[in-house]
């Protein structure tokens, strides 16, 4: 039963992943679509960060916000992304005593 669920999940995840390779190969987009697609990474980052970050600690959304602000500060100071991640983990750890 579980195995069929896993296979079903694998199929519905894989198809949307590989379809674009065929579409882009056989179609040429006008320039404005190119610009749209080039902006997608930044848009995706925004949509992925919020409101999801509020659920880091579901009963205390301010913890996620504080960790997010710590990450913004560290990244703004050009600190390597690995330490940005560790700094945010440390912030949550200290705030959830």
């Amino acid at each position: 039963m579980i195995i069929w669920m896993i296979i079903g999940m694998a199929v519905v995840t894989a198809v949307p992943r590989f379809l674009p390779a065929f579409i882009v190969d056989f179609a040429t987009f006008p320039r404005w679509v190119d610009r749209w697609l080039n902006a997608i990474p930044y848009a995706a980052l925004g949509a992925l960060i919020f409101p999801g970050i509020l659920t880091v600690k579901p009963d205390a959304p301010q913890v996620g916000v504080a960790a997010g602000l710590a990450a913004v500060l560290l990244a703004w100071l050009n600190i390597h992304i690995i330490f940005v991640v560790l700094g945010a983990i440390g912030t949550v750890f200290l705030l959830t005593v």
């Binding site: 930044y42 848009a43 960060i49 997010g68 560290l74 940005v84 945010a88």
Partner: peptide, 28 residues
């Protein structure tokens, strides 16, 4: 929180390079 921090760490350098990128992320 690790993945969210990573998303932030990826976005901020682009925003510093071109501030208008923040408007795209905030719209989304």
């Amino acid at each position: 929180v690790a993945l969210y921090a990573m998303f932030i760490g990826l976005l901020i350098p682009s925003v510093k390079r071109n501030g208008r990128i923040a408007m795209i992320a905030v719209t989304a």
